[in-house]
Design a protein around this nucleic acid. Structure first.
Lengths: 216, 216
DNA sequence: TCGATGAAGTAACGCTGTTACGTAACTGCG
DNA sequence: CGCAGTTACGTAACAGCGTTACTTCATCGA
């Protein structure tokens, strides 16, 4: 019927449209038919290029982790490793708030919505976490953190950050304190919990705060 | 067709069946038709009693928060308030692991699956958090925690715990450390981050560990 | 120029939540 | 006891979902 669209990159087009649909209408609005309509094709395209909605979502999750990794990779190492750790925290949260729906699909145990993630899809955090592990290791070398496995310390920080972002995006945070207050309190608590001094953490937090990236 | 079931508590029956369906088959298996079949009625019952699937899920979430609150309320106050705080952490995680699917619906920003939670539904954490706030306040009075708002401190602990449980249930935790290790490391870090001494925390953790409730 | 290959469209299947409509049962009043 | 009134339930349908045979058609290589 419609003139045949010669588009060898239909897969990419589909992914971009899916991301836009997800961002604008939420996960409920991300259906094969609406996606097909958005790119001017038929639902079959999803199957020839991805083999189903699951795989398309999986590809989006993949892309989401890559973007998160990129966002955290541009945080440079400075002489203050604790400030670096907190700067990574800022980057993590900023990326999540920039793509809230995607974040919820990545971590929202999206199996709920019928989208099923495979085992490997959840392990992208492994390399996403690497910049944080490095910064923690340097903070440990600098004597700011207690001696211990940087991977375990970094993972605990990631866990706490995910808890914050997850509850913030879900609207679960309780009234008197907004997410910003909770976030910085969380950062302070994490650094002190890892072994840093209370005053030293405050100074490093001030430094990290100045390094927040303006936009994506 | 079938003999009219005289069951004035059909609403309760539906809720129980829904909980069982959710636990056994996951959120994808929780449909009006399967639910109706499970209790030997028709899909209409869901609408006369709840006004739709959303409200039924909302009622389950309500019940889930109540159960969580109950589970945390049986943690008694002892002279070691920090041990109490960690015992509440154990209770929180134990409850979540006992009802993983329900937990994911409660916090999994279930809007993804088409189930929408109302604003008020998310604020049940307000009273659920109260036992933790009290324990934190006592730990502060005892000089174990730094002076500060117990609500903010407790909220940060809840955030971190939710992060752990959420990632654990979703299968996101990274290999070398299992969830138990991460959990106890998280507890230690939280107590130290709140102001407790490293050695004092270790002693209290040992006490809290002995108090774990055996079953629901 | 012609056959082969692969992708896209059509239409259908079974499933979902939801609702209009009819019916049957319980409730309360006389 | 008998008769409305109200409520709850079953039936059947609608729209929309993911998915999949089957068909059609554009493109490429010989």
């Amino acid at each position: 019927m419609s003139p045949r669209r010669i588009d060898p990159k239909l897969a990419t087009t589909l992914l971009e449209a899916a991301a836009r649909l997800l961002a604008e209408e939420g996960a409920a609005g991300l259906t094969t038919r609406r996606l097909a309509a958005a790119v001017g094709t038929s639902t079959t395209a999803v199957y020839t290029h991805f083999g189903g909605m699951d795989n398309l979502v999986r590809a989006m999750v993949h892309e989401g982790f890559a973007r998160l990794h990129r966002r955290m990779s541009i945080v440079r190492a400075t002489p203050d490793a604790v400030a670096d750790v907190m700067a990574l925290g800022y980057a993590y949260r900023a990326n999540s708030l920039d793509h809230p729906q995607l974040y919820q699909v990545m971590f929202g145990s999206a199996a709920l919505g019928g989208f099923a993630l495979a085992e490997g899809d959840r392990q992208h955090g492994k390399y996403t976490l690497q910049p944080l592990v490095d910064a923690v290791a340097r903070a440990t070398e600098q004597g700011r953190f207690r001696t211990g496995d940087p991977l375990l310390v970094a993972q605990n920080m990631w866990i706490a950050l995910h808890g914050l972002v997850s509850l913030e995006l879900g609207g679960y945070l309780i009234d008197p304190y907004d997410a910003d207050v909770c976030f910085e309190a969380q950062l302070r608590s994490l650094m002190v919990g890892a072994g840093d001094g209370y005053e030293a953490t405050a100074a490093s937090l001030a430094r990290a705060r100045r390094r927040r990236s303006p936009r994506t």
